[in-house]
Nucleic acid binder design. Structure first.
Length: 590
RNA sequence: GCGCCCAUAGUUCAACGGAUAGAACACCAGCCUUCUAAGCUGGUUAUGGGGGUUCGAUUCCCUCUGGGCGCACCA
C-alpha cells in the first residue's frame, strides 16, 4: 500500500475512534482545493448525516478530540471541512526513502494479482495507409498494456492484422491498373522489380489504395473487376493470389518497422487470412446449434431479443463478414493462452459489433470476461480524417516533420554535439511527441490533432517532461553524483539526508505530489486511462520547474543541499517511471 | 425511425457528488554576468437553455437546442 493510503487509513481510524462509530473510510479523505487549507481533508457531511449533527460542529469536534501526532502535524476546521496538515519531514522521509528503494517499481501495485489479461490492439489493414488514427490505437493499446502490468496483471499484448478483405482487392486492382499495364504477366517477380527502388513499399500500397478507391467509385467495370480479383485471391491459386502474398509481405514489413521504431512488441500477431476457412466451417456448426440462422439468403445472428439487433455473418452471396474470422480468433486466443480476461482495443464506433460478438462467444461457451476498450477518433482541425478522401496525416509525414523540427532545435541549442548524440536525442523527442499527443487526452474523447501544436514542444507536451528530467540530471551531474541505478542506493545513503532540511513550501508540494503518484497509476489502471498519468506528470513537472526557479540547490548549505538533491532525484525517478508507462523514454540532456 | 455519445475561456483539454470551476495554446507585460529561457512570473476570458434530486450538481435524472456516431448484406 502507498504511504499516502496508509496515512489516510490511520486518520480514518482516528476519526472513527473519536466519533465512536465506523463510518469514515480512507477514500472519504480528499485533497483540499487550495494548499493553504491543508494536505488532506474530510468533508463532514456524511458523518453529519450518520450522527444527526451539524457538519461544521463535527469538524470542530474532531479538531478538539484528535491529537496531532506521527504523520499528522496539525488539524483545523474550516466550515464543514476537517482539514489535516501532515508532518513535512516525516512525509518527505517516507516518500523519498520509498522511491529510493523501489526505484522503477515505485508506484506499481499488486492489485491485479498476476491475472492474465490478453490485450489485442494494432488491429490494422494491410494494403492501406498507416495514419495517425492508427497511431492512437497502437499508442493507447501499448500504454494500456504497460499500465495494466504496473497494476499487477500479467498482460499479453497481441495484434490482429486484417489481410484479407475487399480493400485489398481494390489496392491490387490499382496496382495492376496503374503500374502493370492492366495485366499480370507470367513473370510477376520481374514485373515487380520496378518497386525495388521504393524504401517503404507498404506506404506505397497506401497511396495506391487511396488512388484506386477514387477511381473505382466512378467506374462500374472496375467494381466488377475488383470482385473478380477478390474471388481469385480467395481461391488461393492464381496470379492475383501470388500478387497478394508479395504485397501483403510489404505491408507486414512496414508494420514491423513501425513497431520497432515505436518500441512496441507483441507476444503474437494473428492474421485474418489464417482464420477465414476455419470460420466458414464454424458457421455451419453454429447453424446446427441454432446460434446462427439463415435469413433472406444470408446467415445471421438474430440478437433482437437481447436488444442487439441482427448481425450478418455470411452475405447472401456467401462472402464472409468480420465475425467469421473473429470467432475462431477468439477461440484460438483462449486455447493458446487461457487468459482470465480478453480485451479488444478497437475504435468505439464498433461498440455494437463487439457486444454482438461477445454475445455469440458466450453462447458458444466462452464465459471469461471480454471487454471492448473503445477509443474515439483522431480528427484534424479542419474536420474528419478519411483514407478514402485522402484527407489524412500519415505516420511517415508526421515523423518526417517532427524529425526536421526537433533536429533544427537541437542543432541550434547544441552545435557542439556529435551527429549520433543529436540523432538519439531527436529520436527520443519525436517518439515522445507522437505518443504523448495520442495519450494526453482521455481515450473516450476525440483528439483534434494540430500538427503545429505538436511541433511546438511547449506547454502540455512530452518535451516539457523530458526537459524537466534533463534539467534535474544536469544538476545531479554537477553535484558529482551519478544517478546510475546500481550505485544510487549508496549514493543516496552517502547524502546523509536530514529531511527537516526540506522546509520550503514548494518542497512540501513536491513531496505531496510524489506521494500521489501511486494513486495516479491505480486510477489509470482502473479506467484504462493513461491520460491520468500524462496529466499527473505534467503537474509534477510544473511543480518541479517552479521549485527550480525559486530555490537554489547546489548553492545551498551542505545539509540542505543533500536533502534537496535527494528530493529532485526522487522527482526524476517518478518522471521516468511515469513516462515509461506511456512508452516514452527520457533524455539525459536536451 | 430506434439507440449511444458529446456540449466548460478565442482554441484544445481538466475537474472521479464537495471549498473561490483548473491547465495549456493564443494574446499582452516582465525575467538569462545566477543549477539548461524547450523554462519562470503576472494579466484578460467559460459550465448551451429550462426543470428536478441533494446540505451541496460541470458531475445524477427529465426535457429542449445544437453536434457526432451506430443500427441486417460497407469494411
Amino acid at each position: 500500500m502507498s504511504i499516502i493510503n496508509k496515512i489516510k487509513q490511520n486518520i480514518a481510524k482516528e476519526i472513527n475512534q473519536a466519533v465512536k462509530a465506523d463510518i469514515v473510510e480512507s477514500e472519504n479523505l480528499v485533497y483540499p482545493s487550495r494548499v493553504d487549507m491543508g494536505d488532506l481533508s474530510l468533508p463532514c457531511f456524511v458523518l453529519a448525516n450518520n450522527l444527526g449533527k451539524n457538519p461544521a460542529k463535527i469538524a470542530e469536534f474532531l479538531v478538539k478530540n484528535i491529537k496531532p501526532k506521527g504523520a499528522i502535524a496539525g488539524l483545523s476546521a474550516l466550515g464543514p471541512y476537517f482539514n489535516i496538515k501532515l508532518n513535512k519531514a516525516e512525509l518527505a522521509k517516507e516518500v523519498v526513502n520509498e522511491i529510493e528503494s523501489l526505484r522503477e517499481n515505485y508506484g506499481h501495485n499488486k492489485s491485479g494479482r498476476k491475472q492474465k489479461i490478453m490485450i489485442e490492439y494494432s488491429n490494422v489493414n494491410t494494403h492501406k495507409e498507416y495514419h495517425i488514427g492508427h497511431l492512437r490505437n497502437i499508442c493507447y493499446g501499448d500504454a494500456v498494456n504497460r499500465v495494466t502490468r504496473a497494476n499487477g496483471y500479467k498482460s499479453i499484448p497481441v495484434s490482429y492484422v486484417n489481410d484479407f478483405g475487399i480493400h485489398i482487392a481494390k489496392t491490387i486492382w490499382g496496382l495492376i491498373k496503374f503500374y502493370l499495364d492492366d495485366k499480370i504477366s507470367d513473370g510477376i517477380n520481374k514485373d515487380l522489380e520496378k518497386f525495388s527502388k521504393y524504401e517503404n513499399k507498404g506506404a506505397l500500397l497506401g497511396e495506391i489504395y487511396a488512388r484506386a478507391n477514387k477511381a473505382i467509385k466512378k467506374d462500374k467495370t472496375a467494381k466488377q473487376l475488383v470482385e473478380v480479383i477478390m474471388k481469385k485471391i480467395e481461391s488461393r491459386a492464381s496470379k492475383e493470389y501470388e500478387l497478394w502474398k508479395i504485397t501483403r509481405a510489404w505491408s507486414i514489413e512496414q508494420f514491423a518497422k513501425i513497431y520497432e521504431e515505436l518500441g512496441i512488441e507483441f507476444e503474437k500477431i494473428y492474421y485474418e487470412s489464417e482464420f477465414i476457412e476455419k470460420g466458414q466451417k464454424m458457421v455451419k456448426e453454429l447453424l446446427q446449434k441454432n446460434i446462427l440462422e439463415k435469413s433472406q439468403g444470408a446467415v445471421i445472428a438474430n440478437l433482437e431479443k437481447y436488444d442487439l439487433g441482427v448481425l450478418v455473418v455470411l452475405r447472401s452471396d456467401g462472402t464472409a463478414t468480420y465475425p467469421v474470422a473473429d470467432i475462431p480468433l477468439a477461440m484460438r486466443k483462449f486455447k493458446e493462452y487461457n487468459p482470465d480476461a480478453s480485451i479488444y482495443v478497437v475504435d468505439k464506433r464498433q461498440a455494437l459489433y463487439f457486444k454482438q460478438l461477445f454475445h455469440i462467444l458466450k453462447a458458444i461457451g466462452y464465459k471469461k470476461p471480454m471487454i471492448h476498450l473503445g477509443y474515439d477518433v483522431v480528427k484534424l482541425p479542419n474536420g474528419m480524417m478519411s483514407s478514402r478522401l485522402g484527407n489524412t496525416i500519415t505516420y511517415e509525414d508526421l515523423k518526417e516533420q517532427l524529425f526536421k523540427k526537433a533536429k533544427e532545435e537541437t542543432n541550434k541549442r547544441h552545435p557542439d554535439w556529435s551527429k549520433e548524440k543529436i540523432d538519439s536525442t531527436v529520436c527520443a523527442l519525436v517518439l515522445g511527441v507522437i505518443k504523448f499527443e495520442m495519450l494526453k487526452i482521455n481515450q473516450e474523447q476525440p483528439i483534434t490533432f494540430d500538427i503545429g501544436k505538436a511541433l511546438s514542444f511547449n506547454g502540455f507536451t512530452s518535451a516539457y517532461l523530458q526537459y524537466t528530467y534533463a534539467r534535474i540530471q544536469s544538476i545531479v551531474k554537477k553535484a558529482g553524483i551519478q544517478n546510475n541505478p546500481p550505485e544510487a542506493d549508496q549514493q543516496a545513503g552517502k547524502l546523509k539526508v536530514d529531511f527537516n532540511e526540506l522546509f520550503e513550501e514548494k518542497e512540501h508540494n513536491l513531496i505531496l505530489r510524489l506521494a500521489k503518484y501511486p494513486s495516479a497509476v491505480k486510477q489509470a489502471g482502473k479506467d484504462f486511462n493513461p491520460s491520468e498519468i500524462a496529466r499527473y506528470l505534467f503537474e509534477l513537472a510544473r511543480d518541479m520547474n517552479d521549485y527550480y526557479h525559486e530555490v537554489p540547490i547546489l548553492k545551498s548549505d551542505e545539509k540542505t543541499r543533500n536533502a534537496r538533491l535527494a528530493l529532485i532525484l526522487s522527482v526524476s525517478q517518478v518522471i521516468k517511471n511515469g513516462l515509461d508507462l506511456l512508452g516514452i523514454g527520457v533524455v539525459e540532456e536536451m
